[in-house]
Nucleic acid binder design. Structure first.
Lengths: 101, 101
DNA sequence: TAAAGTAGTTTATTTTATAAACCAAATTTT
DNA sequence: AAAATTTGGTTTATAAAATAAACTACTTTA
């Protein structure tokens, strides 16, 4: 959407996704969360979650640390400052689509 | 996303689209709008707009009337009650993703 | 009357989202 | 102690969406 009447701000496609939005929403509130927790809270399948975490990481919106919890592998995610900013911008952009706000 | 911790409401995929959202946003405010106006306000290409208008109509969210303005074809759109409700529900669902709201 | 513009639609291409299948290691069952 | 199951994921395949490009039909302008 290149040129419009300026009333609509573009929506960051990286955040305009149900699952990625849910992941970001959680990470905004919890300091950090592991794969298992994110999966339970979002109800996503492992495959979908894995892919979307990758995209958020590649965008620099979250930080991902792979390690072990006891003997089991553990993927821990946390939001970055960049991610926080992007989320705020996304919410602000969303507002431009909602009359009376 | 079938089963989650209940914190996230599902986002109507028909509205969770930048262009469809923009079209709905306009139609919420103007009583009716034609293709040319919607195209100018959204900055969308004709093809994209045509397709998205179709989807909104098929969902019953908007009403589309094809006629003529002078000798030129004219496609006029207006929102339906169903569309109004769906938009409100979408906005409400969105809130569940935004901490502190 | 030829060229250019208007108002779209249709079709093709690219991108996304999602699911299904798989893998390695750990744990539990028999 | 095997065998089966579970855990915590990744990779690959498929379905759906968004977008752009090409086209149609008609009108206006030069």
């Amino acid at each position: 959407m290149p040129e419009n009447g300026k009333q609509f701000k573009p929506l960051d496609p990286l955040l305009h996704s149900e699952l990625r939005l849910a992941v970001m929403s959680i990470l905004l509130e919890v300091d950090n969360a592991d794969f298992v927790y994110l999966k339970a809270e979002t109800g996503a399948t492992s495959g979908n979650l894995s892919v979307q975490i990758d995209k958020l990481q590649q965008a620099g919106y979250i930080e991902v640390t792979k390690g072990f919890k006891g003997k089991m592998p553990q993927t821990v995610c946390s939001i970055t400052d960049c991610g926080r900013d992007a989320f705020a911008a996304y919410v602000d952009a969303l507002r431009s689509y909602i009359p009376g706000r």
